Amino acid sequence: MSDTPEDTAEAPPAAVSSCPAIERLRERADFLAAARGRSKGTAGFHLQARRRPGGEGPARVGFTCSKKVGNAVARNRAKRRLREIARLELPAHGRPGWDYVLIGRRTATDVTPFAQMRADLAAALAEVHR
């Protein structure tokens, strides 16, 4: 066995994310609790938000689209767009200890320009945190 640089070299350090962790909402009770919290509507989606009791832990986010949005293909496309704007905007504008639910809108979530949806989410988050 030789001691070549490849054998003794350490692996590069894992990338560390500067943004806080964001978890997914999965329980129906969490979605219902968020519905009782603050809300803000925009052209492309509706945002529901609430501060969890205790305010501990990372921000959590859930996504939903009813059958009014369209067939399964349209609902999945709308949810993919909502997931992406949440991934981009929540680390900067969301708060730890809060739950957020993004609800797709019929004939709007899939056609609203992506940049507009990002700006709308940032503005909606600022509004519910007031």
Rank of each mutant, 00 (worst) to 15 (best):
M1N: 00
M1H: 11
M1Y: 10
D3Y: 08
D3T: 13
E6T: 11
E6P: 02
D7R: 14
T8D: 00
T8L: 12
A9R: 13
E10S: 15
P12G: 01
P13N: 06
A14R: 15
A14S: 14
V16K: 13
S17D: 13
S17Y: 09
P20G: 08
E23V: 03
E23H: 14
E23Y: 14
E23P: 00
E23C: 13
R24Y: 05
L25D: 02
L25M: 08
L25V: 09
R26N: 13
R28I: 05
R28H: 10
D30W: 06
D30Y: 09
D30R: 08
F31L: 01
L32G: 00
A34Q: 02
A34C: 07
A34R: 03
A35P: 02
R36W: 06
R38G: 04
G41L: 10
G41K: 07
G41I: 08
T42I: 11
T42K: 07
T42P: 07
A43Y: 07
G44Y: 02
G44T: 01
G44C: 01
F45L: 12
H46V: 12
A49G: 07
P53D: 15
E56D: 15
G62D: 06
G62H: 05
S66H: 04
K67C: 06
K68I: 12
K68W: 01
K68Q: 13
V69H: 07
N71Q: 05
V73S: 08
A74Q: 14
A74G: 00
N76Q: 13
N76E: 05
A78F: 06
K79H: 08
R80T: 04
R80Y: 01
R81M: 11
L82E: 04
L82G: 03
L82N: 01
R83D: 06
R83M: 09
E84C: 12
I85T: 02
A86L: 10
A86Q: 10
R87C: 10
L88N: 01
E89M: 11
P91D: 12
P91A: 13
A92F: 03
A92H: 10
A92N: 04
H93I: 01
H93P: 00
H93E: 01
P96D: 12
P96R: 10
P96V: 03
G97S: 10
G97W: 05
W98M: 09
W98D: 09
D99I: 08
D99A: 04
V101W: 01
L102M: 11
I103G: 04
G104K: 02
G104H: 05
G104T: 04
T107E: 15
A108S: 11
A108L: 09
A108E: 09
T109D: 08
D110K: 10
V111T: 13
T112D: 05
P113N: 00
F114H: 14
A115D: 05
Q116W: 04
M117H: 09
M117D: 03
M117Q: 11
R118L: 04
R118K: 14
L121Q: 09
A122R: 07
A122F: 03
A122T: 12
L125H: 03
A126W: 01
A126F: 07
E127W: 10
E127I: 05
V128S: 08
H129G: 14
H129N: 13
